[in-house]
């Protein structure tokens, strides 16, 4: 298993594939007649997928009894942040041409954009403190800080729902996946609290 964990680095080049494919599609016309719009939306889609994968790493490791899989959390988390950042940059650059007037207008008037940017702001400190060094330095605070992924992913879900005109099938599927992933953690949390209480009680 140790050997397998060494193979985790392949996730990085693999994680770049969607971006490269999208870029190629966008330049070749394969994204249709409104490529910038589609490009931005697709980057956001991958960022969301990345977040769901990040949240799946630990339950998956426990379920498959492969503890080394937990390391995927960091990889997926950083990839997701990269896609979220590209999504944000592509939006400001390709769609709005870095025009401060339009960007300011969108940031102040469009609720789903405010929600989306807030989600990105939640992810930013997580990416910054993703190094082993920071983790060591921050200790318990690091764990608490990284709980920001929960508001982030919920904001992303709201952002995604809010953009749609109608036809929420995909969003409903994402919401269900998220419900399972968060529900599992909630159950785990209550189980742990109960066990701690029992332990405290029997220690008395």
């Amino acid at each position: 298993m140790k050997r397998l964990s060494k193979l985790l680095w392949v996730m990085w080049p693999l994680g770049c594939v969607p971006f490269v494919v999208l870029l190629w599609q966008g330049l070749s016309g394969a994204l249709g007649p409104d490529p910038a719009k589609t490009f931005v939306a697709q980057l956001g889609w991958w960022a969301f997928i990345g977040l769901l994968l990040t949240l799946s790493a630990r339950p998956l490791a426990l379920w498959l009894k492969q503890p080394w899989l937990v390391a995927l959390r960091r990889t997926f988390g950083l990839l997701s942040f990269a896609y979220a950042s590209l999504h944000l940059i592509a939006w400001a650059w390709l769609l709005l041409g870095w025009d401060v007037r339009y960007i300011g207008d969108e940031l102040s008037k469009r609720p789903y954009i405010i929600v989306g940017v807030s989600a990105w702001l939640c992810l930013l400190p997580l990416a910054v403190t993703s190094t082993r060094n920071s983790r060591r330095k921050l200790g318990k605070k690091w764990v608490r800080l990284h709980k920001l992924i929960f508001p982030a992913v919920l904001l992303v879900l709201v952002h995604d729902f809010w953009i749609q005109k109608s036809g929420y099938t995909e969003q409903v599927v994402f919401a269900l996946v998220l419900f399972v992933l968060l529900g599992w953690r909630l159950m785990e949390y209550y189980k742990r609290r109960k066990n701690a209480q029992l332990a405290a009680f029997s220690a008395r």
């Binding site: 966008g26 330049l27 994204l31 007649p33 409104d34 490529p35 910038a36 719009k37 490009f39 390709l94 769609l95 041409g97 339009y102 207008d105 969108e106 008037k109 469009r110 609720p111 789903y112 809010w162 953009i163």
Partner: peptide, 18 residues
């Protein structure tokens, strides 16, 4: 309520020019 109607992207456009 969710987006501006002051401009429109005339199709087809390209990745670097909406």
């Amino acid at each position: 309520p969710r987006w501006s109607q002051s401009r429109e992207r005339r199709l087809p456009n390209s990745l670097f020019d909406p």
